[in-house]
Amino acid sequence: MPMFQKMFKGAAVLVVSGSALLAGCGTDMQADTQGEHEEIISNLVEAGFPADDIMVADGQVYVGRDAHVTLDASREMLQTDPHTQEQYRTTNLVSSSISRICIVPNAAFSNNSTLMSALDRAIANYNALGLSFTMQRGGSGCSATISARTMSGAGGSAGFPSGGRPYGIINIGTGTASYGVAVVEHVITHELGHCVGLRHSDYYNRSISCGGAATNEGSAGVGAIHIPNTPTTATRGGSLMNSCFGSSETGNFKSSDVTALQTLY
């Protein structure tokens, strides 16, 4: 079964070309942005991330193909122990004051029927668990909002909670739709998992789900804290939060994912 990154390596190739164009534009704002990106990338490499696992897309730096890293987070990484092997959650979580998280698709997302069907199924995945928060598509009475947007290619990207609020954006590749609703549901549910504080279950060895060389994402400046009553080691197909996914995903949580979320929330 073919395995796919949450954000495809093909996107990284595109980004390298885009970065070269950006560097040649010459405005002060673009130069400042380029300098910040270079420092983040330098910090990530120093913290032990392979260069080919780092990419710049839409003006943001990502590691692990789908985790947004800010400049401050990259600096904090240099002050942490890169050999920490525990897992699953970030240090920051969603506050108990957040009772309703609204997922708001933009126009491009709304116009894709497969993505919209998958989003509804992903929201239902979370609402079935009886967590301290519920999710809904659009609407009012929101304690927090996550914008659902499209990007090119397949896979997705998101970030981690900050200030007690979930990360505010998920990006889902329109190319993912070609694998069917269940696979898109898997990717959306996965990215929403990052938004509420879940790390990759195989963050310490991405080859478990992705194949290839063993790659450790490290603490990524956001923590890698084991959640009680969940496995400390990952297996291929053992968690929806594995780094890579296949073309036959069901889109449903595994038992360890349910335990992790119900323990946290």
Rank of each mutant, 00 (worst) to 15 (best):
residue 255 S to W: 03
residue 262 Q to R: 15
residue 80 T to E: 15
residue 111 N to A: 14
residue 137 R to S: 14
residue 208 I to A: 01
residue 225 I to Q: 09
residue 260 A to E: 05
residue 222 V to Q: 10
residue 92 N to M: 13
residue 215 T to R: 13
residue 172 I to P: 04
residue 207 S to P: 01
residue 79 Q to Y: 09
residue 123 I to W: 00
residue 261 L to N: 04
residue 2 P to G: 10
residue 166 P to S: 07
residue 50 P to T: 06
residue 43 N to L: 12
residue 197 G to F: 09
residue 255 S to I: 03
residue 256 S to P: 02
residue 168 G to V: 02
residue 4 F to W: 13
residue 139 G to A: 02
residue 73 A to L: 13
residue 151 M to T: 01
residue 66 D to S: 15
residue 191 E to C: 01
residue 202 D to F: 00
residue 246 G to K: 09
residue 76 E to G: 11
residue 122 A to G: 06
residue 145 T to G: 06
residue 25 C to I: 12
residue 81 D to L: 13
residue 180 G to N: 12
residue 229 N to E: 03
residue 261 L to C: 07
residue 257 D to P: 01
residue 225 I to W: 06
residue 128 A to T: 02
residue 188 I to D: 02
residue 46 E to Y: 09
residue 173 G to S: 02
residue 223 G to E: 12
residue 94 V to A: 09
residue 143 S to L: 12
residue 226 H to M: 00
residue 163 G to R: 05
residue 137 R to D: 08
residue 246 G to C: 13
residue 106 N to G: 08
residue 129 L to K: 04
residue 66 D to M: 11
residue 167 Y to F: 14
residue 148 A to V: 04
residue 86 E to L: 00
residue 38 E to A: 15
residue 78 L to D: 13
residue 18 G to Y: 05
residue 72 D to P: 11
residue 156 G to T: 02
residue 227 I to Q: 04
residue 125 N to W: 05
residue 106 N to M: 02
residue 48 G to N: 05
residue 179 Y to N: 04
residue 177 A to I: 06
residue 3 M to Y: 11
residue 50 P to G: 04
residue 57 A to W: 15
residue 193 G to S: 07
